[in-house]
Amino acid sequence: MIELVAGKYNYWIYIVLMMIGFYAMIAKENLIKKVIGINIFQAAVFLFYVSMAKVTGGTAPIEWHEAHVYDNPLPHALMLTGIVVSVSTTAVALALIIRIYGAYGTMEEDRILEINEGRDMGDTL
């Protein structure tokens, strides 16, 4: 039991972090909060990947004459690009939010839906 916890506890913490982000994405009405949730979710995925690259006793994946074991460089390279892509998606999401705020005067999802419903009824009447 102790071995199980010692070997896996970090995965569980990443899952808790991921679920915090997931909850923000589905339950928060504010669109900026949703973007924050996406960011936390992505951070949890990055943590999960990078922790899989760790080898006990390994050093950073840069050539060093005293090193015997290196960590796995592949997840590092993938997550490096992942972080830069995450900032790109955040930028596009924020740009969309600015435009939505300009059009609706609010960035709460339920208010936007209410305004949309009102518009639909206005069209049919």
Partner: peptide, 13 residues
């Protein structure tokens, strides 16, 4: 690319 895109995004946002 990265520098130019970051500058552009900031200027626009």
């Amino acid at each position: 690319t990265v520098a130019a895109v970051m500058i552009t995004i900031f200027f626009e946002a």
